[in-house]
Simulated assay, not measured.
Amino acid sequence: NRILTDRISDYLFCPTPQAQKNLIEEGFENFDCKIEVVGDVMEDAVRFYSKKANKVSKILTENKLEEYVLCTIHRQENTDDLDRLTQIINAVNEISSTIQVVLPLHPRTKAIILKNNLQLNAKIIDPVGYLDMLNLTKNAKLVLTDSGGLQKEAFMLKKFCITLRDETEWVELIENEVNFLAGADTKKIVSLALNKLKTTFTCDKNLYGGGKASEKIVEYLLKTT
């Protein structure tokens, strides 16, 4: 779907230079379209809605959350592979002996855990909406996830992220040492998590446009249409 949508578009607005490079390598310079790096509209949304989340979200008080690690697990490569899922859960259980792990549990992941009688020692909560997730991320000490978007949101909210995958599309986060690939390796997940819990987040690089992507898109369209 992404390739098809790109192919029929007149304008392709890229979140990063790497994304632009990917399109060029796919041959999009030979098509009748414009390719521009403008930043990531996700950062626009995070900056705008995180202020609202502070006022609206009650997720922290309702669940009596103070110091915690935020974790999400939903990707099929993890949930459909029992060995990978078991290793991730073992890591969560070990980290939980040091600091509370909060896990908004996807119904599909929950069903697989129950079916296989896996023991999960974490604070399980129901899936949450966008504002609650922003508030959870903003106040977490660390993020563990196999999500694509949450990797970026963690960075935008100045949190280290341990990615429960073997690769990521957001290579700039890896290069700037704010995101770390751990796959489903229990020891690696735990080691990285315990290390980053002791480390201060200091990266202040503007990797995704600084919340100005929407403005740049509008300005570009007004100039060219």
Rank of each mutant, 00 (worst) to 15 (best):
V41D: 07
E66N: 15
L70G: 00
Q20F: 09
Q18D: 07
K51Q: 14
Y11Q: 01
G27V: 14
F48R: 14
R47Y: 05
C71S: 11
T72G: 04
K34P: 05
L60E: 07
A19G: 13
S9K: 11
T61I: 12
E77G: 01
E36V: 14
V46C: 09
V56I: 15
M42K: 02
H74T: 02
G39N: 04
A53M: 00
A53W: 06
R75H: 10
T79I: 15
F31I: 08
P15Y: 09
E67N: 15
D40A: 08
L23I: 09
G27K: 12
N63M: 02
N78A: 10
T61M: 00
D80H: 14
Y68W: 03
I24D: 03
L65N: 07
P15I: 08
E26N: 12
K34T: 08
F28M: 12
Q18S: 11
N30H: 11
N78T: 10
T61R: 05
E62Q: 03
V38L: 13
V41G: 03
K58Y: 00
E29S: 13
D80E: 15
E62I: 02
F31C: 05
Y68A: 04
Y68T: 09
Q20I: 03
V37S: 07
R47I: 15
L12I: 13
A53C: 06
R84C: 00
K21M: 12
N30G: 03
L12D: 10
R84L: 06
L60H: 01
Y49K: 12
E43T: 12
P15F: 02
C14S: 10
I73G: 09
D81V: 06
I8L: 11
K34E: 14
M42G: 10
V56E: 11
E77L: 10
E66T: 07
K58Q: 04
Y49Q: 09
T79D: 06
L82Q: 05
N22Y: 04
E43P: 08
H74Y: 07
K34Q: 13
D80Q: 15
E67F: 04
Y11G: 03
N54M: 04
E25H: 08
T61S: 02
G39T: 05
R84K: 15
C71T: 03
V46R: 01
Q20T: 05
V38N: 03
D10V: 04
A19P: 07
G27I: 14
E67K: 15
V38A: 11
S9F: 04
